[in-house]
Each structure stands twice: as structure tokens, then as C-alpha cells.
């Protein structure tokens, strides 16, 4: 079968279909029997609502658009990117964001998957435990920030310090010390986001066929071995996906940090997401900021590139199987 102009490659079923496949199908027939009709509605939806804004964001990143003069943007090429690469503060922000993301993702995944395994077992009051963990994730991140701001407060209103005092440990500077502030913002993010991994993996654990697990049990595998040799390999693509999305979410967090430390002390806990927000919109209404939408968009692109690299790594390592090609 030689077709010169194949805009869409013909869809091949993974398995032969029950009816006969003739070689003389028209383009339309091939198109209809292929995967594209399945994909079309979703792709149309994305084209209508997402493509234009995202492309114009790319364009904005190459202009000097500011909030104050939003209708008078000039095209300035890659000047915004050049500015960012030469900005030492921005580079150190990126570095902290890596630490924040890697520690945060590892923490979320280990705890979240652990909780999913734990709460997948039949036990009394399971719903209550699940609801408890979920509720942390349901509160909006800005309010999580406010809440922990007060719980971690170094004044005598600080709940955590008050508990430590009961145990006999002296006041800890949770938010104003350069090191503990970093630990605090990472910890709060883990606290809030663990439920995502838990729910996601709870859904995934259901797809592990019981007989494989039972077979492993009969073969004498202990719980840890069953986890590492049966469950994890089986869920590999889902775990990879979960990691991708947790990474993106963690990388983009800014509201919590804004409420907790505002990126401080100094800029010790500033992440790239927070930088983008501050550059584009100012750190609060009262201070204004420059409202540099162009540079904010450029930071957005940098974030995109970094998360894209992360995603590609996960895709290679965990998700794409040979069959996907």
C-alpha cells in the first residue's frame, strides 16, 4: 500500500479487528477508523481555549509589556531572557526551587504512596483517616499559608513552639532563620499536597490484579518484596505520571510561600513561581512593583523548559513503553 500524501498515518489496531480490513479504504475511512476521531474533541477544546493564550504568552515574553502600559508593548526579542540569565538573584532562586522541588516531591511521593498502601488495607475507620488527609489538600493554598503562618509564628501565639515548650525545647525561629525557613516552606507544601499522591495511587492500586499478588504470596514473597517486585513494576507508568504532576505542581507553588515568608528572609525561600508572580504583579497591592508582564512571561517560559526537562526524564525512565511508539 503506497500512499503519497498521508496527512494522517492510517490507524493500525494493536490487535487485528474482527472484520476484514481492505486495502482500498479511502482517506476518510482510514481517518475514521484511526485514533483521531477519539482525540479530536479533546484537541479541539484545547485549541479553542488553551492554544491562543499560551502562544500569546510566548509572544508577550518577547515584549516589554507592563501592566501600566499594557497596550503599548514593543517587541524586544530575547532581551527578557538575557536579563534573567544575567540576574544572579534569579539564578539562586532557580537553585532553591530545585531543592524545594526535589525534596518536596520525594517527601510527597514516599509519604503519599505509603499512606495509599496503608489505607488500602481493610481497617476500622478507614474513611475517617482518608478524609483527614484529604482535607489538608482541599483548603486553598493561600489559606494554608495563613494558617501555618500563625502556627509557625515565633510569637507566643505559635502553636508549634508552644508544643515544643511543653516538651522543654526552646523557641525555634521557624520562619526567620535562613535554614529553618526553607525547611518550613518545604514541610508545609508536603503537608498540603500529600493527599494528591494518596488519592491518585489509591485509584491505581485497585488496578493491580489480586491473583498476581496472591501468586506472589504463595511463592513466599513478603510484604516488602510484593511491593517492590509486583506492585511498583505494575504501577510503573502511573507512578511516573504521578511524579510528573507532583513535580509540576510543586515547581509552580507560590501562594503558600507568599503567605508564609513572602520569599524571605531576604530571598532565601523565593521560588521561581513566586518570582514570576512578583515580577508580573508585584508582591502585594500596596507596593505595586513594576508589573513587568513581559519578563513574568519569560520566567514562565523558563519554568516551562525546566518542567519539560523533568517530564522528559520521567517519560524516558518510567512511562513510555515500546508499545507507545
Amino acid at each position: 500500500m503506497i500512499t503519497k500524501f498521508r496527512f494522517f498515518p492510517p490507524g493500525r489496531e494493536r490487535v487485528a479487528k474482527p472484520r476484514n480490513v481492505s486495502n482500498q479504504r479511502t482517506f476518510l475511512e482510514r481517518f475514521i477508523s484511526g485514533p483521531w476521531p477519539w482525540l479530536l474533541p479533546a484537541i479541539l477544546m484545547l485549541l479553542v481555549f488553551r492554544l491562543y493564550p499560551l502562544l500569546s504568552q510566548l509572544y508577550i515574553s518577547m515584549t516589554d509589556m507592563r501592566i501600566a502600559t499594557i497596550n503599548q508593548a514593543n517587541f524586544i526579542g530575547l532581551a527578557n531572557y538575557e536579563f534573567l540569565l544575567n540576574d544572579r538573584a534569579f539564578i539562586s532562586t532557580v537553585l532553591f526551587t530545585f531543592v524545594y522541588t526535589i525534596v518536596g516531591v520525594a517527601g510527597q511521593f514516599i509519604i503519599g504512596f505509603g499512606l495509599a498502601l496503608l489505607l488500602n488495607q481493610p481497617m476500622f475507620g478507614r474513611l475517617v483517616y482518608r478524609l483527614a488527609i484529604l482535607s489538608a489538600w482541599v483548603i486553598s493554598s493561600l489559606i494554608v499559608g495563613y494558617m501555618w503562618r500563625l502556627m509557625l509564628s515565633e510569637s507566643s501565639a505559635g502553636v508549634l513552639n508552644a508544643w515544643l515548650a511543653v516538651v522543654g525545647i526552646d523557641r525555634v525561629s521557624w520562619l526567620s532563620d535562613l535554614t529553618t525557613a526553607k525547611i518550613s516552606v518545604i514541610g508545609v507544601n508536603i503537608w498540603r499536597s500529600v493527599a494528591f499522591t494518596m488519592v491518585f495511587m489509591l485509584g491505581g492500586l485497585q488496578t493491580v490484579p489480586l491473583e498476581i499478588l496472591e501468586a506472589a504470596k504463595v511463592d513466599g514473597a513478603n510484604a516488602w518484596q510484593r511491593l517492590m517486585r509486583v506492585i511498583v513494576p505494575y504501577l510503573r507508568p502511573l507512578i511516573g505520571l504521578n511524579l510528573i504532576f507532583v513535580t509540576i505542581a510543586t515547581f509552580n507553588v507560590y501562594e503558600q510561600i507568599l503567605a508564609l515568608t513572602g520569599g524571605g528572609p531576604g530571598s532565601a525561600t523565593e521560588t521561581v513561581g513566586l518570582s514570576m508572580f512578583k515580577v508580573a504583579f508585584g508582591s502585594s497591592i500596596g507596593t505595586g512593583g513594576l508589573g513587568l508582564l513581559g519578563r513574568g512571561a519569560a520566567i514562565g517560559t523558563v519554568m516551562f523548559i525546566i518542567t519539560f526537562i523533568f517530564a522528559l526524564i520521567y517519560l524516558r525512565l518510567w512511562i513510555f513503553t515500546k508499545e507507545d511508539d
Partner: peptide, 27 residues
């Protein structure tokens, strides 16, 4: 389905989700 360009399609779809949309609010 298996088809040519499947990975590319999937990556492109993922790409849409990866771009932080803060500034795209204006367009």
C-alpha cells in the same frame, strides 16, 4: 491504537499543561 506520531501527540498534549498560565491570563 498504535500510530505514527503518537508519542509526539502525547508530549504536545502534556506541553499545554506544563506552561504556567499566570501571564496568559491577559490574552
Amino acid at each position: 491504537y498504535r500510530f505514527r506520531g503518537k508519542r509526539l501527540t502525547m508530549v504536545l498534549i502534556l506541553t499545554v499543561q506544563l506552561i504556567p498560565g499566570l501571564v496568559s491570563m491577559i490574552p
